[in-house]
Simulated assay, not measured.
Amino acid sequence: MTDFYHSELFSYLVLPVLIVLARISDVTVGTLRIVMVSKGQKKIAPLLGFFEVIIWLLAMSKIIQNIDNWVAYVAYGAGFAAGNYIGLILEEKLAVGIVQLQIITRTNADNLIAKLKAKGYGITYHDAYGANANEKVAVIYTIIKRVDIPEVIEIIRTYNPNAFYSIEDVKFANKGVQPSVRSVERFRKGK
């Protein structure tokens, strides 16, 4: 077995694959840790940081032990790049946190407002003026869970397809309307 660890097969194939996998793991965990820090998740972020550093130390120790192996360097870089990509995909799928949607419509927003309210989204709206001083617009604000973004965008596209909207991350919101919580309560009550 000792001969295998010193063979070219191990040095130029197995070791680089292990380094790629380690880097994918630690960078993916690191990406998720950064997201958790930005979302104020004080308990999860340090735990992720612990595992991120342990995995990184294991990968770096193998790089140092094989300092003359250029394939290990390429594997290290490839793992880093892939880890960033996978971490971002995972973060998008997890959809942790809340966002603020600001919707600006040139046309009558009554149907859009009614549909958002009917779906349980808390909204605030007011009339305003657009780019042209004579152009009246409606401005609608709502704070929603990131996981609900596709549903709200579909409502916007259905009821006001030319509306302008922007989405911003929100670290914290006090009180408010939470349709997901109410939906769970309705389900439990059998409604």
Rank of each mutant, 00 (worst) to 15 (best):
V27E: 02
G30H: 01
L32F: 13
V35W: 05
S38E: 09
S38V: 09
G40E: 08
Q41K: 14
K42V: 04
I44P: 02
A45N: 07
L47P: 00
L47K: 09
L48N: 08
E52T: 00
V53F: 05
V53P: 03
V53Q: 07
I54V: 14
I54P: 01
I55P: 07
L57Q: 08
L57T: 13
L58I: 15
A59D: 08
A59M: 09
S61L: 14
S61A: 15
K62F: 15
I63T: 11
I63N: 03
Q65L: 15
N66W: 03
D68I: 09
D68L: 13
V71E: 09
V74W: 10
A75T: 00
G77N: 14
G77E: 07
A78I: 05
G79L: 10
F80G: 05
A82C: 10
N84Y: 09
Y85G: 02
I86G: 07
G87C: 11
G87T: 10
L88K: 03
I89Y: 14
E91W: 01
E91V: 07
E92W: 07
A95P: 08
A95K: 08
A95C: 10
V96T: 13
V96S: 13
G97I: 03
G97P: 05
I98F: 14
Q100P: 05
Q100Y: 06
Q100V: 11
Q100E: 13
I104S: 00
T107P: 00
N108C: 01
A109E: 03
A109C: 08
D110S: 12
L112S: 04
L112T: 01
I113F: 00
I113M: 08
A114Q: 13
K117V: 10
K119A: 10
G120S: 12
G122K: 07
G122A: 13
T124P: 03
H126C: 01
H126K: 04
A128L: 06
A128Y: 01
A128K: 03
Y129T: 12
N132M: 10
E135F: 01
K136S: 11
V137G: 03
A138T: 12
A138F: 02
V139M: 12
V139C: 03
I140A: 06
Y141P: 06
T142V: 05
I143H: 03
I144P: 08
I144N: 04
K145C: 09
K145R: 14
V147C: 01
V147K: 15
V147Y: 14
V147S: 11
P150K: 08
P150M: 12
P150T: 11
E151Q: 14
E151A: 13
E151V: 01
V152Y: 00
I153D: 06
I153G: 03
I155D: 01
I156F: 04
R157N: 14
T158I: 07
N160F: 04
N160K: 04
N162V: 06
N162T: 13
